[in-house]
């Protein structure tokens, strides 16, 4: 008995339990690596005095964690997965909150010849035709979902040595591409944060395409293993409202705006 008390006391003295209050936000690497997350957390804390704990996972993992009741609200960029989550009844609402666009980056002095108006699709097609090395995230992320969408529209089922699967987040994948002098799809924000450290350059960038939509997805309290905290709703109201939207618009890195508030008109 004494023994068990000893064990428990060591544990309790050194552990802190999950106190109600901090909001568990499930989100993706691109938002952390660009610095937006910290910016939003600080703003939200300043307004409402509620701390946010961001659990950074790939979009696929975020919804898995949400199903298990381990996060209170999700901020992701994988429209298909978000829709599926809502259709399964686990998610309550999905609101697009901000966006930017995807780019293709690759080695300097690229061997890929494209005309000036080439889209990402055109570029991917040429890449695969010429069997140039391309790195796919392959981690269930929103970026990978976007790549899959383009490839399936093109009717390409990539395989072979030139199609490399990194299985890692955006940052490490960019570094891998830089080391291997390969091509990869990347979001605008992460590219801004990383480009100085890479020997890669922009191949295709079409800001007007606005393909990378981030959405806030709320968890259905009735179906989740653990109902989300009340502060989740507060965060939802804040980020979709004028204050949160302004916080996104004003976020800059090196004088560059990384995200645009609201919903991209091109989203389908």
């Amino acid at each position: 008995m004494k023994y068990i008390i000893t064990l428990l006391s060591i544990f309790c003295l050194n552990a802190t339990s999950y106190a109600a209050g901090p909001l568990a936000l499930g989100t993706t690497t691109t938002l952390r690596d660009s610095g937006l997350l910290e910016h939003l957390q600080a703003d939200f804390y300043a307004t409402h005095g509620i701390a946010i704990r961001s659990v950074v996972l790939s979009s696929g993992q975020v919804f898995n964690a949400a199903k298990r009741g381990d996060i209170d609200i999700a901020l992701t960029h994988a429209p298909k997965a978000e829709q599926a989550f809502i259709e399964s009844g686990m998610g309550l609402a999905r609101t697009p909150v901000f966006y930017n666009h995807f780019l293709l980056v690759g080695p300097k002095n690229s061997g890929l010849k494209l005309n000036d108006k080439a889209s990402l699709s055109d570029a991917l097609q040429s890449l695969h035709e010429q069997r140039l090395p391309f790195i796919s995230r392959d981690d269930g992320s929103g970026t990978q979902a976007f790549e899959q969408k383009l490839l399936s529209q093109l009717g390409i089922e990539p395989s072979g040595e030139h199609y490399i699967k990194s299985g890692r987040g955006m940052g490490p994948t960019l570094q891998l591409a830089s080391q291997l002098q390969a091509y990869t799809l990347c979001d605008w924000a992460t590219w801004q944060a990383y480009q100085a450290k890479l020997s890669l350059e922009l191949i295709v960038s079409t800001p007007q395409a606005k393909q990378n939509q981030y959405s806030l997805v709320t968890v259905n309290p009735n179906t989740s293993a653990h109902p989300p905290q009340a502060s989740a709703e507060l965060f939802y109201t804040w980020l979709t409202g004028p204050a949160g939207q302004a916080a996104i618009e004003t976020f800059q890195v090196n004088g560059q705006q990384l995200f645009h508030a609201g919903m991209a008109k091109s989203e389908n």
Binding site: N14, S17, A24, V55, A65, R68, G69, D70, A225, H226
Partner: peptide, 20 residues
């Protein structure tokens, strides 16, 4: 420790306790 797991009620996932 996950909320959906057998010890989920303690809400220990993503805390230092879980790491211990």
């Amino acid at each position: 420790l996950s909320r959906a797991g057998p010890l989920g009620i303690f809400g220990l996932l993503y805390t230092p306790s879980a790491m211990i």
